Each structure stands twice: as structure tokens, then as C-alpha cells.
Deep mutational scan, measured.
Amino acid sequence: MSRESDVEAQQSHGSSACSQPHGSVTQSQGSSSQSQGISSSSTSTMPNSSQSSHSSSGTLSSLETVSTQELYSIPEDQEPEDQEPEEPTPAPWARLWALQDGFANLECVNDNYWFGRDKSCEYCFDEPLLKRTDKYRTYSKKHFRIFREVGPKNSYIAYIEDHSGNGTFVNTELVGKGKRRPLNNNSEIALSLSRNKVFVFFDLTVDDQSVYPKALRDEYIMSKTLGSGACGEVKLAFERKTCKKVAIKIISKRKFAIGSAREADPALNVETEIEILKKLNHPCIIKIKNFFDAEDYYIVLELMEGGELFDKVVGNKRLKEATCKLYFYQMLLAVQYLHENGIIHRDLKPENVLLSSQEEDCLIKITDFGHSKILGETSLMRTLCGTPTYLAPEVLVSVGTAGYNRAVDCWSLGVILFICLSGYPPFSEHRTQVSLKDQITSGKYNFIPEVWAEVSEKALDLVKKLLVVDPKARFTTEEALRHPWLQDEDMKRKFQDLLSEENESTALPQVL
């Protein structure tokens, strides 16, 4: 008996699950189920560990084997000379395990699969056993689809999209007709009724959600790893209520002995410091949205989908001078704002400069500016000194954290500008005749005249004003913003236009 009217009423009120309206889709043409990776026989039982391990490696599972009696060998002398080797079968990115008779397991190899009674669906509900069930008529011709799209860092995100009359449910929550939600590992998919569980979705590319604290899981769906560094790992996640993407940084307390840091400095109150950081608001710094204190720290951040500045300059790639100017102007505005709010970044580098898009002209935002507030000064500097390429001379020669101030950030900005303009770092371990530390503390950077011949004198002058060993003589952010190279009204107008595109209400910060 159909429950279409009941569920449609529920759909009209929406769902609290991570779902959002989605535009129309072009329906895929039908194809045989076997060619799409559906096993030839149905099963109602969950797999054992041996079955799972075989399939996850990209080899055929026991459900897909063919009797050897149906095959015969071709003698080598009868092999056609022009026969080309077969292409290897792509490894599946996800697996659906059937929970009921009449449904088959599915190895997801393609990027898009339609499910329903219509014969054009890649996964067609046409098993005779299924057709005899009382629920068969409640399934729509095109009930739902599972697909994946390219996300940040060229990774993939799996989604389920509801197109049914009676509802598609993920972990008992209604997706909603015309809406989608991301699928995470071990999600249970039910059709027409929330208790009519048909599939379990296994994402073969992500970790299980159960490793994360419950308070975090209640608000966010964790997904793929976006990156990792000395101070922690960053994962893509989704807000459950809105389906908006965020980035979540995970900082290990054990790695940084944060408990010991608190004992050594009783004034170090991470929760208080995070609340201060959350109040920071500038178009060129990453917004801190939320914070969870569990076995590790979880910092929920605004997501930038254009990648890191590092990706644009790695491998001796240089940027156009006009692009360097647009990016560097924004970096200076961001660091100036942090300094005005009493925050020294201490870890400025291309990896911590994020881009809003893949376009050459785009907004940038500074991230990882609050680590000293979370990890403690000593722990952070011990970590950073392991990779000193961007560290100021006074940091390398000081004991502990004494003896330096916000000028350290201006040195790091000078190193970043040098790399963007030239395509190579000013200080490098590859210069074996002088140690990296000695290069930095003496201010002897690697200047290649033929490379810098293409760079304007004004740009080079600003680099020199920032890479000054004496912090008292080094340019401040205010002085850098007043430098002739940055007195470019076309560049500032472009920045204002980019801000307006992102948010019509965002105004250009005042600069002296």
C-alpha cells in the first residue's frame, strides 16, 4: 500500500538533515546492470571481512566470479597478432551492500547512478522477487541517484539526491524531493519508509565518522582530508542543518603536550582565546566558526575552494607581477588587521594563504593565525623552527619566545613576496656552502639577476625593505602599504570589485 501522500506532506515541511535544493538533472540513458558494476546475484546478508577486503582492492568479489566451465583457453599460436591488451577495470570509489532480497550489490565505478523502476536507470528495480513485494509499487520510476562531484583539492564528494514520490531516507532522515545531501561511510539508505532499509553505503575513500566526538558529529558530517601540516590535519565537512561546506582543523593534544602547556602557563585558556579569535572579522582572514574541545581540538573554519598559494608557486613557478601585487596587498591588509588586534601570526607561508577560486584574479585569505593562542608560545615555536624557511632572523637566534615582536610577520611576508615574484625561495638548504640558518640570520638571500630583470624596481625595493635583518629597521605593514609599488588604483579597484562580488555589503578597509 502506498504512503505517498503521508511522505509528500513530510517532504513539504523539509528536513533537518544536511540537504539543499538542487537544479534539474539530465537523465542518464539506460545500460545493462552488469556493465555498471552490479553483481549478477542479489543478497540479503552483509559481507564478511574477506569479501570486503577483496573488493576494496579493486579485484572481483566472490559475488562477481564466473564459473571456469564457461571459459576456455586460447593457445598462444592462435592469439590474433593485432589484439590489444584489455584496459584494467577501474577501482570502485564506493560500494552499496544490499540489505534485502531482490536488490543486488553495487560497485560504484562510474560517477553517476540512477536507481528506480524505469529501465533507463543504471540500477533498475526489475528483479522478479522484488516485483512480488508489497513495497515495489511505492518505488518511483526514478527514485534517487548517487553521484560524486569534484571538491576541494581535486578530491571527490559523494551525494545522494531524492527524486521520489514516497521519499528517500539516509539514516532515517528524509532527504526531500529535489534535494541532495552528502553521503558518508556506513550510511543506511531506506526507500519509501524510513524503516525500509535497502542499502548500506560504503565510501571507500573516507574514514568512519565514529572516531570523532559526538558533539562534533551532531553538527557536522566529516568527509575527506584536505591537507595536513606540522600543526594538524584539515578535513572537509558539512553543516548538517545547511549542507554548507566547512573546513575542520584537528590539532592533536598529545603531539603538542597541550596539557603540560596549560600547567606551565595557567593563564592559557584555550576556550577564552578561541572566543576572541571567533570575533575577528576581516575579508582577508579565514573566519573561525566553531570550536570543540575533546581528546583533540577541532576548529571549524570557513572553507576556501581555490587551494593554497603554495600550489601556484611550487615547482619554480612565478606569478605575474600584477597578480603578485593583488595578492600581496590583501596579505598586508590581513596581517595589519591581526597586528591591530594584538595577534602575531608567526607562521606566514604560502600554505597559509588560501585562494577563493581558481581564477588568477581572486580574493585571498590568511589562515592559521591563532596557533600560539591554542598551542602555547613554546610549543608552537619548537614546531616552526623545524622548517625555518620563512622564519625571521630574530626568531632563530632567540631562546624560547623572548626578543621578537610583530616584525617577524613582515619578514615572512618579504619571503613570500620574493617567491611569488621570482619563482624560487630566497633562502634554501640546497645552497650547501652556507647553512639555512646562517643565510637567514645574515640576510644573504639568493639573488639571480636574469630572473629579477623581469621584475620592476619598485617591487624589488619593497622586497629589500622587508628582508632587513634588524627588526627595528624592517618595514611595518603600514609602511609597506604606503610603498610606491602598491599605489596602484587599478589594483585596488579590482580588489574592491572582487569584494563586491563576494558580498555587496563588504567595504574596502581604510588604508593610510
Rank of each mutant, 00 (worst) to 15 (best):
S2C: 08
R3M: 07
E4G: 10
D6C: 03
D6T: 15
E8R: 11
E8T: 05
A9Y: 08
Q11F: 14
H13E: 07
H13Y: 12
G14L: 05
S15M: 07
S16F: 06
S16T: 06
C18A: 10
S19R: 05
S19A: 10
Q20D: 01
P21I: 10
P21M: 07
S24F: 11
V25Q: 13
V25E: 10
T26G: 03
Q27D: 05
S28H: 13
G30H: 04
S31T: 08
S31V: 08
S33F: 11
S33P: 06
S33D: 12
S33E: 12
Q34T: 12
S35V: 13
S35F: 15
G37C: 01
G37D: 09
I38E: 14
I38A: 11
S41A: 10
S42D: 13
S42R: 14
T43K: 06
S44N: 12
T45R: 10
M46Y: 09
S50G: 11
Q51G: 05
S52Q: 13
S53Q: 02
H54S: 12
G58E: 08
G58F: 12
L60D: 15
L60G: 11
L60K: 04
L60C: 13
T65I: 04
V66T: 11
V66Y: 13
Q69M: 07
E70P: 13
I74L: 14
I74M: 15
P75M: 07
E76W: 15
E76H: 06
D77Y: 11
Q78C: 13
E79Q: 14
D82W: 06
D82I: 12
E84M: 10
P85H: 09
E86R: 06
E86M: 10
E86F: 06
E87V: 06
E87R: 05
T89L: 06
T89G: 06
P92F: 14
W93T: 02
A94P: 04
R95L: 05
L96Q: 00
L99M: 12
D101H: 13
G102Y: 08
G102A: 13
A104Q: 07
N105Y: 13
L106M: 10
L106H: 08
C108P: 15
V109W: 11
N110K: 12
N110H: 12
Y113F: 12
W114C: 14
W114R: 12
G116I: 01
G116S: 02
R117P: 02
K119E: 07
C121F: 05
E122W: 15
E127S: 10
E127V: 11
P128S: 05
L129A: 08
L130V: 06
R132T: 11
T133Q: 08
T133Y: 10
T133K: 06
K135A: 14
K135D: 04
Y136F: 15
Y139W: 05
Y139R: 03
S140A: 03
K141P: 02
K142Q: 10
H143Y: 04
F144A: 04
R145A: 02
R145V: 13
F147G: 00
R148G: 10
K153C: 00
N154E: 02
N154S: 10
S155K: 14
S155E: 04
Y156H: 06
Y156A: 06
A158K: 14
Y159C: 15
E161S: 10
E161L: 14
E161G: 12
D162T: 14
H163F: 06
S164H: 06
G167D: 00
F169C: 04
V170R: 02
V170Q: 08
T172K: 15
L174E: 07
V175D: 00
R180A: 04
R180S: 15
R181I: 05
L183C: 11
N184Y: 07
N184A: 06
N184D: 09
S187K: 07
E188L: 05
A190Y: 00
L191H: 00
S192C: 15
S192V: 07
L193F: 02
S194I: 06
K197V: 02
K197R: 02
F199G: 01
L204W: 00
Q209N: 15
Q209L: 15
S210P: 04
S210N: 00
V211C: 11
Y212I: 02
P213I: 15
K214P: 02
K214F: 08
A215R: 05
L216N: 00
L216K: 00
L216F: 15
R217I: 06
Y220R: 01
I221W: 07
S223L: 15
K224G: 04
T225F: 14
T225I: 12
L226G: 02
G227A: 15
S228M: 15
S228R: 04
G232A: 02
E233T: 13
K235F: 12
K235I: 00
K235H: 07
K235G: 15
L236K: 04
L236P: 05
F238H: 15
E239C: 00
R240T: 06
R240C: 10
R240S: 03
T242G: 15
C243S: 06
K244M: 13
K244D: 09
K244C: 09
K245M: 07
V246A: 03
I248L: 15
K249Q: 02
I250D: 00
I250T: 01
I251G: 15
K253P: 03
R254S: 04
F256L: 14
A257Y: 11
G259L: 02
A261E: 06
A261H: 00
A264E: 03
D265L: 01
D265A: 15
L268V: 04
V270E: 13
E271C: 13
